[in-house]
Design a binder for these strands. Structure first.
Length: 179
DNA sequence: GTGCCGATGTAG
DNA sequence: TACATCGGCACG
């Protein structure tokens, strides 16, 4: 189980170490294959750069806390706080609770279930109430075995595009976009 | 495969 | 007004 100590480290380290770990969201989820890292300081693409409410949240909440918000008015995105950054979960290889996730997504294809942050939120039935919950209560299991991690530019942003802070399992067929 | 576009809520 | 998106459609 990933503890608060795991998340209370430099955010780029936490982000890469999350690849290959398991996410268990009430019996649904699987293997984390893609994340993005956002820096609380000096990252113009991070919410904290332009949103006072976000700065207040990261200032008052401990590492390992869920940071959940509504994107484009229709998709809840799952993030977790690290010591000095926010990690966005972008893709998971479905392993558990598959039939329920298929039902929530209205799709059968495993490759289409959680291959994007919006899809993942839908598959997990993520909602506003999850913002601020403690994610160090068994939702994450440590990586077993090795993984080849690739880094690349973050997806869908218009600022700080030069930062290669998207991390993914190079060999996974369950990514939102090939790296 | 590529590209366009509408749906949809809200912080600032 | 700008989004840390997605699915459906047209086109080739």
């Amino acid at each position: 189980m990933l503890t608060r100590r795991f998340f209370d480290r430099p955010f780029l380290t936490v982000a890469q170490d999350l690849i290959g770990c398991t996410l268990d969201w009430g019996g649904c989820g699987g293997r984390i294959v893609e994340v993005e890292a956002y820096g609380v300081e000096g990252d113009d693409a991070c919410h904290t750069a332009h949103r006072p409410s976000s700065r207040e949240f990261v200032r008052t909440q401990p590492p390992g806390t869920a940071y959940v918000y509504l994107n484009y008015g229709m998709y809840w995105l799952l993030n977790v706080l690290a010591r000095d950054g926010i990690i966005l979960f972008r893709a998971v290889e479905p392993v558990m609770g598959i039939s329920l996730m298929q039902q929530r997504r209205g799709r059968e294809s495993l490759r289409d279930l959680c291959s994007g942050p919006g899809k993942l939120g839908r598959a997990l039935a993520l909602e506003k109430a999850h913002h601020g919950i403690d994610l160090t209560r068994g939702q994450f299991q440590a990586r077993i075995g090795g993984v080849d991690i690739a880094a690349g530019p973050r997806i869908g942003i218009s600022k700080a595009m030069e930062l290669p802070w998207r991390f993914a399992d190079l060999k996974s067929p369950f990514l939102s976009v090939r790296i």
